[in-house]
Amino acid sequence: MEKYFKDLRSKIGHDEIIMTGVTGVLFDETGTKILLEKRGDGSTGWSLVGGMQNLNESAMTSLQREFKEETGLDVEITALIGVDTNFHQVFPSGDKAQIPCFIFEVTQVGGELVPDGDETLALEYVSIADQPKMFNEQHQLVIDQLYRQAPYGWYF
């Protein structure tokens, strides 16, 4: 958790706050599998790569930072897939947040695929057709939209 959120939580405890999220979809070379991660926070199921937007970052630079930190990959943003604005999450710590999330398609431009061993325990390209079970409803929505081949630019 970034210093900004730690400072905020020290003042308000576990009360619900708004935290802008960013998520990236990285397809394999066939376009049929996407990179998913096993999270290190005790959550069950898969997760898309992403995290929270920090102060003084754009959504795009936040996602690039998250990819580098969690996967070792350098990525470029290629498209806005969608936006989900009314998801509520209770984290394992008890912290609550409403997480408006920007979902982007990305391409790899450098780096080497290596999980960080902290936030990300494992990384794997998983077939969208297999409908992988995601760790929360927001990430599941993205998988469902990709599976349905919904046109980019969707929002909820």
Rank of each mutant, 00 (worst) to 15 (best):
E2Q: 14
E2G: 02
K3L: 14
R9N: 10
S10V: 11
K11V: 08
K11E: 12
H14R: 14
H14V: 14
E16S: 11
M19P: 01
M19V: 15
G24D: 03
L26G: 03
F27N: 04
F27K: 01
F27A: 02
D28L: 07
E29Y: 10
G31W: 05
K33L: 05
K33F: 04
I34S: 06
E37R: 15
R39Q: 09
G40P: 04
S43I: 11
T44Q: 12
G45V: 07
W46E: 06
V49M: 01
G50F: 07
G51N: 08
G51K: 07
N56H: 09
E57V: 08
S58I: 09
A59V: 08
S62N: 04
S62I: 00
Q64K: 15
F67T: 00
K68L: 14
K68N: 14
E69W: 08
E70R: 04
E70L: 09
D74G: 05
A79H: 02
I81M: 13
V83C: 03
T85Y: 11
H88N: 12
Q89A: 11
V90G: 11
P92S: 01
D95Q: 04
D95P: 07
K96S: 10
A97V: 00
C101Q: 03
C101R: 11
I103D: 04
E105N: 02
V106H: 06
T107P: 07
T107W: 09
Q108I: 06
V114Y: 09
D118K: 15
E124G: 00
S127W: 08
A129E: 11
D130E: 13
Q131S: 13
Q131R: 12
N136E: 00
E137T: 03
E137P: 02
H139F: 01
L141F: 11
L141Y: 10
V142S: 03
Q145H: 13
Q145G: 04
L146N: 12
L146E: 05
Y147T: 07
R148M: 13
P151D: 14
G153H: 03
F156N: 14
